[in-house]
Amino acid sequence: MSTVTEPMTRRAYLLAAIQADGQPVTTCRAEQLLDGSPLTPTGRNTVRKALRGLARDGLLIAQDLGGRRIYLIPTTTGEDGLA
């Protein structure tokens, strides 16, 4: 019996890498995280588009800090502020 698996998209790989890293991510850091991927190399603009797409989908939070855009992993907290 063979199992069909879907290839991992760039966004899915990037999100998994960001979650594993656990730190806020800039475009530069996202490029570094993608360097070790099995996916074809990408340019900065493609990485920016992937980050914006993940933020648009609610999987990351975009925030401007000191004139730079960073992306954060959303945290889930209850009403009392505890995870």
Rank of each mutant, 00 (worst) to 15 (best):
L14Y: 06
R52L: 12
L59S: 10
L33T: 05
V4R: 05
V47Y: 05
R68K: 14
Q63D: 11
I61N: 05
L15N: 07
L39Y: 10
M8S: 07
I70T: 09
G66F: 04
Q19I: 09
T3Q: 14
L34P: 05
L39T: 12
Q19M: 12
K49R: 14
P7I: 00
A83T: 08
A17T: 04
L51T: 00
R69Q: 15
A17F: 09
A50H: 09
R44S: 07
D80H: 11
D35Q: 14
A17Y: 03
G67T: 03
T76L: 15
G36L: 02
Q19F: 02
G53E: 06
I18S: 03
K49M: 12
N45S: 15
E31H: 04
T76D: 04
T26H: 06
Q63K: 03
C28A: 05
A16L: 10
P24T: 01
G22N: 09
I18G: 03
D35N: 08
D21H: 12
N45Y: 09
D64V: 13
D35L: 08
D35G: 00
V4T: 11
L65S: 10
I61P: 09
E79F: 04
A17S: 15
L54Y: 01
L14H: 05
T75G: 01
L15K: 01
V47W: 04
K49P: 03
V47T: 15
S37N: 01
T3P: 04
L60K: 12
T26Q: 02
L59V: 02
R10Q: 09
T76C: 10
G66M: 15
M1N: 15
S2Q: 07
T3L: 15
A30C: 04
V4L: 13
T46I: 13
M1K: 14
G22Y: 08
L54V: 12
A12P: 08
Q23C: 05
R44T: 04
N45G: 13
V47Q: 13
R69S: 14
Q63I: 05
L59I: 00
T5F: 08
G36S: 02
S37V: 06
A50C: 11
R44Q: 11
Q32T: 11
R69G: 02
G66P: 10
S2Y: 07
G22V: 04
D35C: 09
A55H: 00
D35I: 00
R56H: 13
Y71M: 03
M1V: 15
Q23A: 00
T9P: 03
T75S: 12
Y13I: 05
M1L: 15
G43R: 06
L15P: 02
G67N: 01
E79W: 11
V25W: 03
T27D: 03
T42E: 04
G78P: 10
L34F: 05
T3A: 14
I70S: 08
